[in-house]
Amino acid sequence: MNIFRLAGDMTHLASVLVLLLKIHTIKSCSGVSLKTQELYALVFATRYLDIFVTYVSFYNTVMKLIFLGSSFSIVWYIRRHRVVRRSYDKDQDTFRHLFLLLPCLVLALVINEKFTFKEVMWTFSIYLEAVAILPQLVLLQRTRNIDNLTGQYVFLLGAYRALYILNWIYRYFTEEHYVHWITWIAGIIQTLLYADFFYYYFQSWKNSVKLELPA
C-alpha cells in the first residue's frame, strides 16, 4: 500500500461519508442523482462478489463492507426514507440506467482477462464505475445550482480517481511491470469525466463564489 492508494481510498471514503451525512442530517437529497447511487451500489455488489471468499487484508474487507453498506444505505434513504424521498427530484434525474448498463455488460463479456462469471462481473464493475458518475454530472449541469456538500462529494470522488492514477504509476515502477489495460483505460476515462467539473470547481474556489455550472 503506497501513499497515493491510501490517500485515494481516504478521499473515496470521505466522499461517501459526506453524502451519507448530508442526507442523514439535513434529511434532504436534493441535487443527488439516485441513478448514480444505484449504479455505484451495483458496482460494489458486482466487484466484491468474493468478499467472504478471497481474503486480502483486514483493511480491504472493512473498506469493502463500508462501501457496500454506505452505497446501499444512500439508495435506501432516497427511495424509502419517509422524509428524504420527498426531496428527490425525479423529473430532473432522468438519465437511463440501461444506456450505461448494457454497453458495460457487453464490453465486459467481450473484453476481459478471463471468461469466468467472477472475472466478467469484476470487469463489468470496472467499466460501470468509469461511467456511473454521468447521471450525477448531468443532474448538476441541469440544475446548475449546486449546494456545497454535493459539490464536495463530486470533488472528492474526482480526487480519489486522480490519486488512483498516481497509485498505478507508482505501482508500475515499483512492482512487476504488468500492463493492466482494462483497469488503466477505464480509470483514465473515469478521471477525464471530472475534468470539466474540476475546472468550474477551481474557478469558483479561486473567485470565492458559489459553484455554478454553465447550462
Binding site: N60, R171, Y178
Partner: peptide, 10 residues
Amino acid sequence: IDADSLKDEL
C-alpha cells in the same frame, strides 16, 4: 507476473 495484482485494490 501476477495478472491479478490490481485485485487487491478497492
